[in-house]
Computed example of a mutant assay.
Amino acid sequence: MSTQGEDNLGTTAVREGYTFNEPRLEAWLEAHVEGYRGPLRVRQFKGGQSNPTYRLDTPARSYVLRRKPPGVLLKGAHAVDREARVLTGLATAGYPVPRVFGLCTDDAVIGTWFYVMDMVEGRIFWDASVPEVDAAERSALFDAMNGALADLHNVDYVAAGLEDFGRPGNYLERQVSRWTKQYLADEDAGPDATLDKVIDWLNANMPSEQDARTSIVHGDMRIDNMIFHPTEPRVLAVLDWELATLGDPAVDFAYNAMMYRMPPHIVAGLAGEGLTRPGIPSEDEYLAAYCRRTGREGMPHYDYYVAFNFFRLAAIFHGIKGRYLRGNAASAQAKARVDVLPELIELTWQQTRRAAR
């Protein structure tokens, strides 16, 4: 298990700058969460780079609270109301997500918007190579992750009440534009010449989106954003829906499969030793399994999609750098993200070269 994973495990006392009026929260819980009974104990999860996340314990049950971070925020970021909505919609479709108990858009309660959901107990694997299980279970876990991604992309988003959750069509174009704007808007983090080159390449080489599919896309589907059953290779809940929208599921799959080219010290990746661990399918096998599950004959622009996802992750880390410099980064591990940003940017450029071959 990586040090980063160990650092993200469990909870800690609420960190300085992220405290709030707990009696006011408890009054809101009593008024809005069915069956809530105190007293309340609040702890902060160590992970959660973007939206601060808290564990709420009572004698009868536990909950999770996700909130916008305090301080100055970029427009459109940290949309916890969208997270709550997609979780609610997917639950109606039978997709494995935590139950949402309530959303609060009144800043007077704890200082920012937040929502409260069920606490799902199970296993989270911070190391994508899953060294703590044997080869057979490792293979089954990868198959379950692949299936969870395919199941999401097969959800009828209209029937789930999410037909207006995003704009169908031109997903890549809008995403490249969105993350370019996010990157340029954060003046505290500053510009980067290599990222500027990446943006130029992405715009110049964007594939046609005429035949692209539309589905709910998660936007951050990594193995460490899934809770697995305590003893079975089965996904109980998918977490961290902040980036979810309607979009091209092939791009969403490529983000998940980016683990094959990502060093584990940046995010949950397999590049290096992890690729040799028994039970892990090859990148081609993993792609083929997803295509079978979603009725595809292949993914012609796969390498471009991977390059885009490296860029988007670099833009996200660039935003973490800005928040870190402003003093309102949501995680104690924000500095680690900032430290690996130059390496991530170089890897991003390498992916554009690979896609250009």
Score class of each variant (00 low, 15 high):
residue 44 Q to E: 12
residue 96 P to G: 07
residue 63 Y to V: 03
residue 80 V to R: 04
residue 273 E to V: 13
residue 114 F to Q: 02
residue 129 S to A: 15
residue 9 L to H: 13
residue 7 D to V: 10
residue 343 E to T: 14
residue 55 R to C: 11
residue 136 A to T: 11
residue 191 P to W: 07
residue 336 A to N: 13
residue 249 P to S: 14
residue 35 G to C: 06
residue 329 A to T: 00
residue 337 R to G: 08
residue 153 H to F: 02
residue 339 D to H: 08
residue 68 K to R: 13
residue 88 T to K: 00
residue 276 T to Y: 08
residue 128 A to P: 07
residue 230 P to I: 06
residue 255 Y to L: 12
residue 165 F to P: 05
residue 290 Y to V: 05
residue 234 R to D: 09
residue 122 G to Q: 00
residue 212 A to M: 07
residue 136 A to V: 09
residue 61 R to W: 00
residue 308 F to M: 14
residue 119 M to I: 02
residue 279 G to E: 02
residue 312 R to D: 00
residue 196 D to M: 04
residue 127 D to N: 13
residue 122 G to E: 12
residue 217 V to M: 10
residue 208 S to Q: 04
residue 161 G to F: 08
residue 9 L to P: 02
residue 188 D to R: 11
residue 268 A to D: 09
residue 228 F to M: 10
residue 242 E to N: 03
residue 200 D to C: 07
residue 54 Y to N: 09
residue 134 D to G: 12
residue 124 I to R: 06
residue 100 V to A: 03
residue 159 A to Y: 06
residue 170 N to G: 12
residue 7 D to S: 13
residue 158 V to Q: 14
residue 77 A to G: 12
residue 62 S to M: 03
residue 114 F to M: 02
residue 258 M to L: 14
residue 176 V to P: 03
residue 276 T to V: 07
residue 11 T to W: 05
residue 44 Q to M: 14
residue 17 G to F: 10
residue 204 A to G: 12
